[in-house]
């Protein structure tokens, strides 16, 4: 592009090409990242024996199935996988609800009260949040075995509910709630529990959604923990069931793809719908 003898006519053309560069690159990157998912979606709609067939000739047929069928999904949910997905959803919902109650209460105490030992409490939260969960999953599963929590829903849910990050996110938001509001409510005889449930919780919807997403993602993404603690078929979570599907001697790829789609679409819908809160919550987590 170095036309040194005629720079004048080349400049506008070069500029207009440059102006479209971001869009072109964005499209290319977006398509590259989405391609594996689109391919899996297409595969899940094909008859099971045709998923990997015809790959020697890559064409638009690889992404758009001409003989689309929901057969894979039907078979999938007739087997153990339906149970596993329901388990995953139930465990995630319970984690979010319990985790939010615990985290919001703790965040409330840390943003409203002055008391001795606050420093210690912060240290516990910070420490628990610096020790990566997967690293302590093995010792924790030992403890849970002793307590008879193996293969129970409680065993699957509990590790998700103590989340230091969720507490920090909520506290950050709670600190912005004006003190006068609390003092006026106390003057009117409202109990501390009342201040929490009638003032702080209703005012903190965005922060609660952000913290809820953190709790949800932790639970939906967990793999090692359910592998350690939920091994019985009726307590299996989705990802473990998927691992079993693809580890069989004869793998039905149609079902594997359908399972992958189900396990991805659920969190994807939640994340895309709540993307705004997700961005807000990560923007507040340690950046500012």
């Amino acid at each position: 592009m170095k036309t040194t003898n005629a720079p004048v006519p080349s400049t506008p053309r070069r500029l207009s090409a440059l102006r479209h560069m971001p869009l072109v690159t964005a499209v290319v990157m977006g398509v590259l990242f989405a391609l594996p998912l689109l391919w899996v979606l297409a595969g899940s709609l094909r008859p099971g024996d045709k998923v990997l067939a015809g790959l020697d000739r890559v064409s638009w047929h690889s992404l758009i199935p001409t003989d689309a069928t929901l057969h894979n999904y039907v078979t999938l949910f007739r087997g153990d996988f339906g149970r596993a997905v329901l388990n995953s959803i139930g465990v995630a919902v319970a984690t979010v609800l319990l985790g939010l109650v615990l985290s919001a209460m703790a965040a409330f105490a840390l943003s409203v009260f002055r008391f001795r030992g606050r420093g210690l409490v912060f240290a516990v939260i910070l420490l628990s949040f610096m020790i990566p969960f997967d690293a302590i999953a093995i010792p924790l599963s030992d403890i849970f075995r002793d307590w008879g929590l193996q293969n129970t829903y409680a065993g699957l849910i509990l590790p998700g509910i103590g989340n230091g990050l969720a507490i920090f996110l909520l506290r950050q938001f709670f600190l912005a709630i004006p003190r006068e509001l609390v003092e006026a409510a106390r003057m009117d005889g409202l109990s501390w529990w009342g201040v929490f449930t009638k003032i702080y919780v209703p005012l903190s919807r965005p922060a609660l959604i952000g913290a809820g997403l953190t709790l949800f993602t932790f639970q939906w993404q967990s793999y090692m923990w359910p592998l350690l603690v939920g091994t019985e078929p009726d307590k299996q979570l989705g990802p473990i069931a998927l691992g079993t599907l693809q580890g069989q001697m004869v793998v039905d790829y149609g079902q594997v793809f359908a399972a992958a789609v189900v396990l991805t679409v659920i969190p994807l819908l939640v994340l895309l719908r709540l993307q705004r809160y997700f961005t807000q919550s990560i923007a507040g987590s340690g950046l500012k």
């Binding site: 990157m29 977006g30 990242f33 989405a34 993404q221 990802p239 992958a260 895309l272």
Partner: peptide
């Protein structure tokens, strides 16, 4: 386009591995 790049986040580790 940002959502497309962001989409794989939703994929659980076991699923992306498979």
């Amino acid at each position: 386009w940002r959502s497309l790049v962001f989409a794989p986040i939703a994929v659980p580790p076991a699923v992306s591995a498979v």
